[in-house]
Design a protein around this nucleic acid. Structure first.
Lengths: 161, 161
DNA sequence: TTACCTATTGTTAAAGTAAATCAAAAAGAG
DNA sequence: CTCTTTTTGATTTACTTTAACAATAGGTAA
């Protein structure tokens, strides 16, 4: 069986859970690609920061740690991580994409259009909807995104929106 | 009361439903902006095509109809339409955003990563989740997006994914 | 170990989206 | 009709992301 971390399927079964790096290594091997220090550095950083990030942020973070790798390597690694289910796009803002490590629990995001904060919420119905779609349409779903835009309580108080 | 078309709130009440163009006019007036033929043309086109579109598509469509307006006007009109709740971003693909007219019924999108088709599905739970968030966090939600990525039945048969 | 093949890297250039600028045109109020 | 201010189209600009390519370095197999 193929290694999977954070997969929707192996949460309730007694399957082994592998670390992101293990999953990535396995993916690289399976695809006949090469495991390079640059790729390892990128994956380690993404899974150590845990939250949302964008390419520039990640690049600067690594730069500040003294890592010498190019932005191009980041751009090239991201599709690999998405492909093996470790990473997800979360939203496109300010002209570029924002990502987050894929997680095992179904959750959505609420973005305030005024202060631009992003809150997460958990809801089992997200998973239920996904499962129904699989049943009804026969899709194999690799990632789910639930996003709401609006104005948060604080901003609603501050200004008339 | 402010005019709203396709709003989540006025569906089950006996409020008048206004056409997108009426909503837009009212919005323009309220904001002290100017109602120009270019804006009207853009709004009419968006709500006549009904489906998803991107800026280039819309521009070419209008061009083919003999309309003489610039792409810049489209880029400038889109945020207005989003702001007044008539338009939503649906997904970012091929380096640019795709939009759709906001609709009154809660629905999600499934995108096949292989053949790139986009299917829509309706599910009342999307609205339920939204309402719960409003209750729990006090947000005013302006748009909701439920997106799933994966591989459709046909593509799963064709290739091993 | 060593040699070889091929993927990957950094650098640089290219493609393309979206936004900014600005003079000319036009909407809307009086 | 006049005046003020917004909007338009054209062009430039800023950026993000991808492509190209020579140099480098995994990984396999002798």
């Amino acid at each position: 069986m193929t290694k999977q971390a954070f997969s929707f399927e192996n949460k309730n079964k007694n399957e082994e859970i592998f670390s992101p790096l293990e999953v990535f290594k396995e993916y690289i091997r399976r695809k006949g690609l090469r495991y390079t220090p640059e790729r390892e550095t990128i994956v380690r950083e993404i899974f150590s920061l845990k939250g949302h990030f964008d390419v520039d942020e990640l690049y600067l973070r690594l730069r500040n740690k003294g890592e010498k790798l190019s932005k191009a390597s980041i751009y090239r690694t991201i599709p690999l991580l998405i492909d093996c289910g470790l990473l997800q796009e979360v939203y496109h803002e300010d002209g570029h994409m924002h990502y987050e490590p894929a997680s095992s629990y179904p959750h959505g995001h609420i973005r305030c259009l005024e202060c631009r904060k992003v809150e997460e919420f958990e809801d089992d119905r997200i998973k239920e909807i996904q499962q129904d779609i699989v049943k009804k349409y026969g899709y194999r779903i690799t990632s789910v995104r639930f996003e709401m835009l609006g104005y948060c309580q604080e901003c609603l108080k501050k200004v008339h929106l």
